[in-house]
Design a protein around this nucleic acid. Sequence first.
DNA 1: TGCAGACAAGAGTCGTCCAA
DNA 2: TTGGACGACTCTTGTCTGCA
Length: 342
Amino acid sequence: MNSAKRTVTSRGRVIAHPKRFTPTTPSPLQLPPPQLPLSPLLQTTADPPLNPKAVDLNRKRKRLVGSKVTHMPSLTFDDESDDEADDDSDVSEDDDIVNQPAKKIMRTTSSCPAFDKENIDITDNNERINMNINNVYIKLNTSFNDNMKKFEKRFNRLTSACLSSKNSSLDQFKSSSADGFQLEVLCGSVNLLDVCARNYGDYARQILRILYTTEELCSSILPTDSTHFARKPLDIVRFRKFHDAIRNKYRIASNKYDEFYHFCLRRKLVDFLCDERKRQIKRKEKLTNNRQQQQQPTHLQEAPSHHQQQPRHDEQLPVHDQQQLSNTAKNDSSTENTNHLD
DNA sequence: TGCAGACAAGAGTCGTCCAA
DNA sequence: TTGGACGACTCTTGTCTGCA
């Protein structure tokens, strides 16, 4: 995956031979809700219409006003005299039908007073039907939203319960038998299994601090197959020893260790490495401030030597963190991590 | 009470996989 | 070939907890 053409993002990620440009689009939450073609009475929420055909119903409603309800499949208000008009109209017709006057309207132009009175009654009846349809849609929409909210609450409770149980209990990953586990995992002369810790997270951090130097922890990421990251992965040989220590310390079944590492440990380790970087930057800032304070007052240069702090071994920053520190001081994060490419 | 460490949440970005 | 889903890492911000 490594290629000669590599670019670096503002956050320091190495883009090895980008294949596809992913445009930055506003999140769906930032986008305006879709404009529903339904009437304003139905647009109580941003939810899409329950039935996609509601769009068609809405368009038909244009035609229904002032006409007779002849195209509502679920309603049977037709009388037999409308059959002629219905024969020439089709539900599947498009805008032409909507824009064209319905044939029923042609009958309202009759000079017969009886027909006029009948059409007025039909119009009033249609308006009442439309109002009823709107009310039904509103009730359905409200009921759907209420049920969705209830479902969301239940789902969130279930999710949190699953996550809490998964994070809090090691028992589900432990082996049923104590056989097959090592009594010692040596790192030099230190048996890693003798290290005491409050919990597996604390133990993992201590083991990492034993296996790796602070520089390595601050300049590396967890071992991964991907090569597009700016920081190099931790040494895989020592990381296998880390896995051995964790698995043997807490008697985790070998067939469940992957799941344990993925769900319980990985995130802790990622945050640990990130926090190590922050801590080192903080230490470096303190060291820099102390040096500046020592250099500024000339009359204090002859002060006792215990003010002069010698940099610790773990305070030697890698190149990219020095760059990051300088960028932090400049309040300009746009140029960080640009000089630490391999 | 202040500080340091651990942890969590979320946004941003990228690569990979896979279905259309 | 394209775009969505998903996983992974980085970074920021904030909260919680233990300790001196």
